[in-house]
Design a protein around this nucleic acid. Structure first.
Lengths: 202, 202
DNA sequence: TCCTGTAGGCGTGTGGTGTACGCCTACGAA
DNA sequence: TTCGTAGGCGTACACCACACGCCTACAGGA
């Protein structure tokens, strides 16, 4: 066999994540990733079929850092801990947030995390269609909340602008936005997830 | 004053939405929108500062179709109806889903909808920090669920692939995915939202 | 040691993108 | 009729993803 491969998918993912962390999503391109690896742009195509696959690799690399082991405690505590692990890991790489929903379902790490969540839901007595709905609702909340927090953080200019809205037209929205300043992303995510848990009866 | 303006923001939004509905998000570009309007590409820049503003216009155009009037019924019924109006409107233009979370907070129509949701939450007795958390959780669920449904519908190839996963490694995930086939987006969204409502005590 | 087939590295080219710049001109007011 | 303003937009540039095909590094066989 001639010419052993010189790049691993993991190296590509690591390089892409470095670019993402440094220059954001706009800075991510085949050129910049190749440059980060010290390799020609077209060489990347020996290892991935297109840009989407690079994004897929980087999403999985990030989610690999989520420990899928099932924590101890009540079902509610277990689910909270599993969900919060995703929040912690993702908040370390905010630029990947927009990619999460697109590639989540193709990431093996995400699948392992999903199996863990479903295991806890099953232990809690959920089966059949109810379990499907519960799992999808949790998915929607977790990834939706991460994106809402990313694109419009409570301690950001967006919320500040809402607080300045004319009170005669938006009385409650402006008041609520003013009240929101200072709530941390961690508290927002955790208490929001508690609402979902309560809805599940856990 | 010479040369009256020949394009309105609404016309631009309508043209962009037509492109989006016809050719999807990938088909949306300044060139295609200009062509749709029968105008030169650069002429658009007399009316918008960049592509992002076109996307903003189209998101608001879509959300304008959401009636922000507060429905009758219990608080739970009111919130469900308001949320479902968003789902119905958005499902008519699936290609805008990825744009929603990015531009939601700059859309006047979205603000009016938010004020309506908050009004119901307030009528139900929520105030202060609890109201902030509740509102953000609802936002996270609504927009997250729409995206989850868009990128990985239960009756789509993604879920079918999950059902084929090795049962020894993903016993519950594969079983749950198999059970998911045939659940409509409407049912998924509505029952998921009921979980959130129950968590809010409504 | 040399040869050779395979597959990695990547330069070049194509058709797309967003948008800066600056010319031409249609138009309303004087 | 003239003139100033602002709309319309052609051209150009930098960037993008990626198809194609050449060159060459390498491992195994002779």
């Amino acid at each position: 066999m001639p010419r052993p491969r010189s790049l691993t998918p993991e190296q590509i993912a690591t390089a892409a994540l470095a670019v993402l962390d440094r220059d954001g999503l706009d800075g991510l391109s085949m050129r910049t990733v190749a440059q980060e690896l010290g390799v020609g742009t077209m060489s990347l195509y020996r290892y991935v079929s297109d840009r989407g696959q690079v994004e897929e690799l980087v999403v999985d690399l990030v989610l690999q850092a989520v420990d899928p082991a099932i924590p101890r405690g009540t079902p509610g505590k277990r689910l909270s801990a599993l969900a919060d692990r995703v929040r912690v890991v993702v908040s370390g790489h905010p630029a990947v947030v927009p990619l999460l929903l697109t590639y989540r379902h193709r990431s093996p790490s995400s699948l392992r995390w999903g199996e863990a969540m479903l295991t806890v839901l099953t232990d809690a007595g959920l089966t059949g269609k109810r379990r499907v709905i519960a799992f999808r609702a949790v998915l929607g909340y977790v990834f939706g909340a991460l994106q809402v927090a990313h694109f419009g953080p409570l301690s950001g200019p967006g919320t500040a602008a809402l607080a300045e809205l004319p009170p005669e037209e938006f009385p409650i929205l402006s008041e609520t936005a003013a009240r929101a300043r200072g709530i941390t992303p961690e508290e927002e995510f955790r208490k929001g997830f508690e609402i979902v848990l309560r809805g599940l009866g856990l």
